[in-house]
Computed example of a mutant assay.
Amino acid sequence: MSRISVIGSGFIAKGFINLLYDHPNYILEKILTRTGIEKRSDFPHNDHMTNDLDELIANSDLIVECTGDAIYACETISRILEASIPVVTMNSEFHVTVGSYFIDKGLLTEAEGDQPGVLAMLHEEAIAMGFKPLVYGNIKGFLNHDPTLEEMQYWGKRSGISLDMVTSFTDGTKVNIEQALVANGLHASIVQDGLMGLSDDNMNHGGNILAEKAKELGYPISDYLLSPKLPAGVFLAVEHNENQKDALHYYKMGDGPYYILERTFHLCHLEMMKTVDRVLRGGGVLLDNSTDPTISVTTIAKRNLKPGETIKKGIGSFDVRGIAVKIKEHKGHVPIGLMKDAVIKRPVSEGSELTFEDVELPESLAVQVWKSIEKKVFEG
């Protein structure tokens, strides 16, 4: 039986560990956490917890990483791949920040469950059926670029997720990160900085508008629809050969030229197991950030920032948010995944993009890796 270990001790990790513990074909081996183990009586199967990465590596056949922390994941995944152990992630933050650097260093893949992985699964199905994807679409129920602390504390408590997680969902950072990963991994692009985010309660109508935009641009796009009425899923807007038009009409897909393939749910940690199965059966990578990314998620100030201020964590903060951008049009920008313990060096006005000239970041492997990725983009 394969030994599976997990990095993380948050909402996703908790659900996956409960699922894994009951699995007939796998053994829950170790759980790597940065918290004090003696204080984690709240966490299931905490007797498997460790603070030692070496212990985790030595006892694992596959490791699942789901911290949502790009900088920490950069350090741990680097060590794991050096040990020739495959890694399955639910960490789009890691991928869009530094993931491209690791693609040729071992088996590394994002999992099904979160929207990027589900879109990758839909992509595989669509290609197998002869469809040509034009739009990789996410569905977002609510958006507020600058929510208040009180609002986020209420919704975090009601949803049972962390404050920074619910804030990143609400201010649009998370959907921009997810769609940046989709664009890079599935060789699409974006229409504009921050995505279009059409408000439309009809998936077919909104999907067709986005498909027309993709045809106009001449390449597939990654974007989302904003609607509180649509299901919490994903969709593809696709086209097919004219000789399939009658059959698709018979299958109640409409008259074309664009068709919507929808997945009306995503079950996060429950679906991660499908990707674990895939990897251990030799199925390979589902989704990564590609060796030649074109899209990043830059940092935008939510308020006027003053020299000397410290931003503890960019993703999910009340100081900054992230938007998807084309790397070649934003040279020197600071990816929001690197904004951790960042000290502001000079005034940054509300709504402005932060560059490396604006902030001082702690030294880390992630910062070094990002700079090598950016250099490759511009030199390539």
Rank of each mutant, 00 (worst) to 15 (best):
N176M: 08
L186Y: 00
M203I: 14
A180S: 15
S199T: 09
L198K: 02
G207T: 09
E178K: 12
D200C: 14
S199I: 07
L186D: 01
G194H: 06
G185W: 02
Q179D: 04
V182S: 07
L186I: 00
L181V: 14
A183S: 12
E178T: 11
Q192G: 00
N184Q: 15
V182T: 07
E178V: 13
A188R: 01
H205L: 08
H205W: 00
D201W: 00
N176C: 13
I190C: 08
V191C: 03
D201G: 06
S189M: 10
V191P: 02
G194D: 01
I190P: 11
L198H: 03
H205I: 10
A183H: 09
L195N: 11
A183Y: 08
E178A: 12
N176K: 00
N184K: 15
N204P: 00
D200Q: 06
L198I: 11
G197C: 13
I190L: 11
S189D: 11
G185N: 09
A188P: 04
D200F: 03
L186T: 04
D200Y: 08
G194C: 13
D200A: 09
D193M: 07
G194E: 02
A180L: 13
N204A: 08
H205D: 10
E178R: 10
N184T: 15
M196Y: 03
D201S: 02
G206M: 06
D200I: 05
G207H: 07
G207A: 02
N204C: 03
N176R: 04
G197E: 13
G207V: 08
L198T: 06
V191E: 03
G194T: 06
S189V: 01
G206K: 04
I177R: 06
I190S: 06
V175I: 15
I177F: 13
I190H: 01
L195G: 05
I177Y: 11
N184R: 14
G185A: 07
N204Q: 12
G206H: 06
I190A: 02
H187D: 15
V191R: 04
S189P: 07
M203T: 06
G206P: 07
D200M: 07
L195Y: 03
G206Y: 08
N202M: 08
H205P: 04
V182I: 14
G194F: 13
I190N: 10
H205A: 10
G185I: 04
S199K: 13
V175K: 09
V191N: 04
D193Y: 12
Q192L: 03
D193I: 01
G206C: 05
G197M: 11
A183I: 05
G197L: 12
S189N: 14
L195C: 11
H205F: 09
D200K: 05
N184H: 15
G185M: 03
L198A: 02
L195M: 14
D200R: 03
G206L: 05
N184G: 15
N176P: 09
D201E: 08
Q192D: 05
N202T: 07
D200N: 12
V182W: 06
N176F: 03
A188H: 01
H187P: 13
N204D: 10
N202W: 05
L181D: 15
A183L: 05
N204M: 01
G197V: 12
V191L: 01
M196H: 00
Q192M: 08
A180C: 14
H187T: 14
V175F: 12
D201L: 02
A188N: 03
M203V: 13
